[in-house]
Design a protein around this nucleic acid. Structure first.
Ligand SMILES: [Mn+2]
Ligand SMILES: [Mn+2]
Ligand SMILES: [Zn+2]
Ligand SMILES: [Zn+2]
Lengths: 143, 143
DNA sequence: CTTGATTTTGAAATTCAATATCAATTATAA
DNA sequence: TTATAATTGATATTGAATTTCAAAATCAAG
């Protein structure tokens, strides 16, 4: 049983929510496919294992996984929210290939520091930030 | 007649599009209200001057203004696309106050440089980037 | 000016992701 | 086992954005 599943079970207990087959299966699928998937994509995969799972339950379960800090929304404003693993993952930003759709995860401590400074200078209290760089990845460039 | 209006007129001519009262009024409203407005907000304002203007036309015209590099989409992934002035404005990022909704425009040449380096290191060709920092602005903090 | 091909318009219909509704089903503690 | 409360999936609904379409407007040519 994965760490995340333990956390999930505990979280559900704490919130008086119930552990169901669907929720278990959705979490397992989410963990197995380590990508930035949309609900639709995750739903299609989970459905294969258990055809009785409904879209609404996938939406609902991913929201719970976010509340439990197991998943995190990634919204690029392209009309579909995606979800990534949060548990055991530090904050990071993304380089996104507009050709193949690959997400490259990056952190630059210097940039993070400069962001802090920039906010401080303006009396702005930073809560969170998003940095996304769009372009063409190494692989796609070669071809 | 504003610079932007000249550009718009030229752009329309070049693309065999027509200059209409609605398009003129939408651009003027857009220029007058120098904020990051959603289509809905811009529509409500433009409608007061000319009640016959329809939402669809506002959507359509803002798309044209983007094509003409007069306007630029700002999509924070909160379900509503906003538009800002592009003509005569350099690239910049945003500090966004989650309390009052204010947009503070910022550029940090050091950050921009580090972003370039980061991409270079990974063989990633940067096309564009978005950086948004969410938090509480000076004004809202005081209260 | 007119003319007339072509574009544009606004209202309404449609799309699409996300959310809400609801009766039937299921989990879980007593 | 039973009672209660949560959960489910199908379906309906929402809200932003887009498409459709017949009527109206633009604008270049005459
Ligand atoms: Mn990521
Ligand atoms: Mn701006
Ligand atoms: Zn790629
Ligand atoms: Zn504020």
């Amino acid at each position: 049983m994965s760490e995340e599943m333990n956390i999930f079970v505990e979280y559900l207990k704490k919130k008086d929510l119930k552990l169901t087959d669907q929720r278990r299966e959705i979490l397992n699928t989410f963990l197995r496919i380590d990508k930035h998937l949309s609900v639709e994509e995750l739903y299609d995969i989970a459905k294969k294992k258990d055809p009785s799972i409904g879209q609404a339950t996938v939406f609902r379960t991913l929201k719970i996984l976010c509340d439990a800090d197991i998943a995190k929304e990634v919204d690029l404003g392209d009309g579909k929210v995606r979800y990534e693993h949060k548990y055991g993952h530090e904050h990071h930003d993304h380089l996104i290939c507009t050709k193949c759709g690959r997400f490259i995860e990056v952190v630059d401590s210097q940039i993070e520091k400069l962001q802090e400074e920039m906010c401080k200078q303006r009396g702005f209290t930073q809560k969170l930030h998003k940095m996304e760089i769009f372009g063409i990845c190494k692989n796609c460039r070669k071809k």
